[in-house]
Design a protein around this nucleic acid. Structure first.
Lengths: 224, 224
DNA sequence: AAATTAAGCGGACCCCGGTCCGGTTCGTTA
DNA sequence: TAACGAACCGGACCGGGGTCCGCTTAATTT
């Protein structure tokens, strides 16, 4: 199965146009089952929708699936899809949620070198490699789930990754502007870039991996 | 004026679904007036459309302008817009074309430190700062013109920037995988990131500039 | 200058993401 | 268990991007 992440923090009931932006960033994700007590039928429909979406995507590819088709496949109305997931991006993101939580659990509390215990540089290296391969696996979905340019960096899951990298960097380079420095590192792991390099330029993943290690090496090399 | 770049390499006549991908990358842009001898009426309409688009964007913002409105303002049919520019992204890109050519001319043949003559590291520094401020000026348009994730990195203007950075890097780090290393550098200059950092996080441009210089410093620092 | 033809034109048309609101159902309270 | 209200549902509806195809017009050829 692909989605399996039926429980995810998606949206407050309906009018989702509010975006507080004051998100706690870290830790917000990780605690499971945070949907604020969905009504029975709503929860059922939510599950149906995710199943339906996964099924259709497996069959036609993420790009070839319309919201209406998902609704039909799930046997619910179109409005229900948007009520639950806000928009297309929201639905796709929910499908990715399970693996996102898994990754986050791994680097927040899993075994070293990804989790705590290893030296920060090693954790950073492992983090990049993990993200790289995870994204490569779900490339189509990751691409389709990418929100428009004005929201890409504000997206909670991206924020979580950014926070993690920033924290690691601060341990390595206490005097640098780590919040900023984290951005190019993260950008290297952008699914759209991975897609470009592997599929459009034909680079093998090994080269990307080498590139990551090299980048980390260069960025974290201290003082002259 | 904003657009002013009436002459740009946009698309062969109609069926644009072909994307050769074998683009010469560099130098392709720079030689002016490369529209392959447009018919008189077509050229006239093209100019009208760009003027109309610029006018409407100035008035309603890039996001608030529909293709149909542009067509109407220019006094042509909707089909004409799409025939000429392929899609929304194409039209917006054409509006940015003038300044893109200007920038390219500057770093390909202008005076140092941007142009040839200065040490590569200085050129790289100057390049980033120039791109940074140029993007900041046209942020709305740059954001609106951003193509979907699967085309973002394949876009000719991005390719041109990437090539330039790669070339500079190779002069500084002959043994590194400069093609790859150029990506995170370029990503730091992504309009979507600039938008996020300045408008959503409230960072001043000075900090972004410092961040660029620091990043260049770290990435180009040679050997242990 | 007439004929020929390829390029260009335009607006009706389709599709899909997203919204709205009248009717329904769940869960709770009395 | 009756009744109430909030949450939910669904599908009609809307707007905008992108396509199509029959008609028009600019360039070229003789």
């Amino acid at each position: 199965m692909l989605y399996a992440g039926f429980m995810s923090a998606v949206l407050p009931p309906f009018p989702p146009p509010q975006e507080p932006v004051d998100t706690p960033q870290l830790l917000e994700v990780g605690s499971a089952a945070d949907e604020p007590c969905l009504r029975a039928d709503a929860a059922r429909n939510r599950a149906r929708l995710l199943e339906a979406a996964a099924r259709l995507i497996a069959e036609h590819g993420a790009a070839g699936v319309t919201m209406e088709a998902v609704a039909a496949e799930a046997g619910v109305g179109k409005g229900t899809v948007f009520r639950r997931f806000g928009d297309r991006t929201g639905l796709l993101t929910a499908l990715l949620d399970h693996s996102a939580r898994g990754l986050q659990a791994d680097f927040l509390g899993g075994p070293p070198p990804l989790g705590p215990g290893a030296p920060p540089v090693d954790r950073l290296r492992a983090f990049g490699v993990a993200v790289l391969y995870r994204s490569a696996e779900q490339l189509d979905l990751q691409l389709a789930a990418q929100p428009d340019p004005t929201r890409r960096y504000a997206h909670p899951s991206v924020r979580a990754l950014h926070t993690h990298v920033t924290v690691l960097l601060r341990q390595i380079l206490p005097d640098a502007d780590c919040e900023l420095l984290a951005q190019p590192l993260l950008a290297y792991l952008d699914p759209a870039l991975i897609n470009h390099l592997t599929r459009q330029c034909g680079m093998p993943m090994e080269r990307l991996e080498k590139g990551w290690l090299d980048l980390v090496e260069r960025v974290t090399r201290t003082g002259a």
